[in-house]
Amino acid sequence: MVTMKQMMQVIACLWLFGCAESKTETVILPFSLSFEGQEVTCSSALQVNALTLYIHDLALQELSGQWQKVELDNSLNSPWQNESIALLDLAPCQTKPMGLTSVAMKVKPGQYQGLRFKIGVPQALNHQDPQLAKAPLDISQLQWHWTVGYKFAYFDLAWREQTVKHHLGSSGCVGNVGDDIQCRYQNRPEITLPSYQLGQPIKLELRQFFTELPHARCFGKPQDKGCDTLFNLLGLQDAPQRIFRLGA
């Protein structure tokens, strides 16, 4: 026997749910790679052996200048994203990708003039016990066990005779596993793309990674010669980032 109270609860639930549904729409944010302006495919001169990124803290800028926090749409139950963090795998033509090529944002309808997001794993999740971590943080390959964190971004590129291998993550850390760990260098670049319009894709222009260093690498150690270029391109030094661009 259904009581009046239970019926009211069901109606209230439906109403709330319906209302919440109508408040946001899902907008896809696609990512792709370019090299000297050309789209990167498996037959490009640039060879992408691996390229993954964690992104979080997405926000859209309203015309008023206000930033609105954007949640990710987790209704597809993707193993590569939850409502707050997504893992991108942008290497072309993979048989077994380790992440997404686009993320689904839950957006309040309206007009926007900018997009921003952070690369990396938020501090609160970065130093958890990785064996207990939930998707998309449960991938051993992207856990950075020696620094007790994650590889926020992972680049393994080759072009002509040159190679580029980078692992980006927090470094200079102290503390105990499963406890509080503090890092001197957070290394979570914030990428801001002014004049972003809903539906626009994002391109990563990779030519700039190839500098005069024949084998550039930054594996999170102070002596790694490639770190300067990597940090500079991602906007971790004084200048703004130069990798992420808006596509047509």
């Binding site: 856990q143 066990h145 105990n176």
Partner: peptide, 16 residues
């Protein structure tokens, strides 16, 4: 000094 847990430490040789 971050490797204070012997179980956790095993992840380095396994996956590094």
């Amino acid at each position: 000094p971050l490797q204070t847990d012997l179980s956790f430490q095993a992840l380095i040789p396994l996956f590094s």
